[in-house]
């Protein structure tokens, strides 16, 4: 039997817009408040928030690993809530407030970041920005979480290097140190 044609199972063409060459629908202007700064930019209708942050705003701290909401490496905060930015179309969140890993530290590291360093809650570090975004959100909503609450907050994150024990210790430690603050 001879078959003709290409039916690759791996075809994936979610971003139909090609800058400068007319392929697919054009870009749409939106505004985002990213890490406290208002950004106006054109986005392709098919572009995810993760792609726009990385490719158009050069905020490459947000990582894409599975690109379908299974690993949470791309976690950012959307109006305060941790979300997988690979599962959000940028065009859907026009006007939203977005916080990324680049905006977590002020003049000094956030207590969660400092605790990650101190507890070696990092190996290859590719999942780390996403984990930190979820942990920072956890401590804002639940300043003194139990170990089970920390594990639940990390439940959607994949870390292949196996940093979970140190991440959990780091978050519990960060919660304790912030307890001592006025």
């Amino acid at each position: 039997m001879v078959m003709r044609g290409n039916t690759s199972p791996h075809a994936r063409s979610r971003t139909p817009c090609v800058t400068g060459e007319a392929v697919g629908p054009g870009a749409v202007p939106i505004t985002l408040e990213v890490n406290g700064i208002l950004r106006a930019l054109p986005v392709c209708p098919g572009a995810t928030l993760a792609e726009v942050l990385r490719d158009q705003l050069q905020l490459t701290g947000t990582k894409i690993a599975c690109d379908r909401g299974a690993c949470s490496a791309c976690t950012v905060r959307l109006n305060g809530t941790p979300v997988c930015s690979c599962m959000v179309l940028a065009i859907e969140v026009n006007g939203a407030k977005i916080d990324t890993i680049e905006g977590v530290a002020g003049e000094t590291l956030h207590p969660v970041q400092a605790a990650f360093l101190e507890h070696d809650a990092i190996q290859c570090g590719f999942c780390t920005p996403g984990l930190i975004m979820s942990c920072v959100a956890l401590l804002e909503s639940t300043p003194h979480p139990s170990e089970e609450e920390v594990k639940a907050a990390l439940g959607g994150h994949l870390c292949r290097c196996g940093t979970y024990p140190h991440v959990i210790a780091a978050v519990l430690h960060a919660a304790q140190t912030s307890k001592r603050r006025p």
Partner: peptide, 21 residues
């Protein structure tokens, strides 16, 4: 000694440059 990793700061702030970046 349990020295903190020298590229840890870059990794927790999103500044570390991976090949995909």
């Amino acid at each position: 000694q349990p020295t903190a990793r020298i590229n840890g700061h870059a990794k927790v702030t999103g500044q570390a440059t991976y090949t995909v970046d």
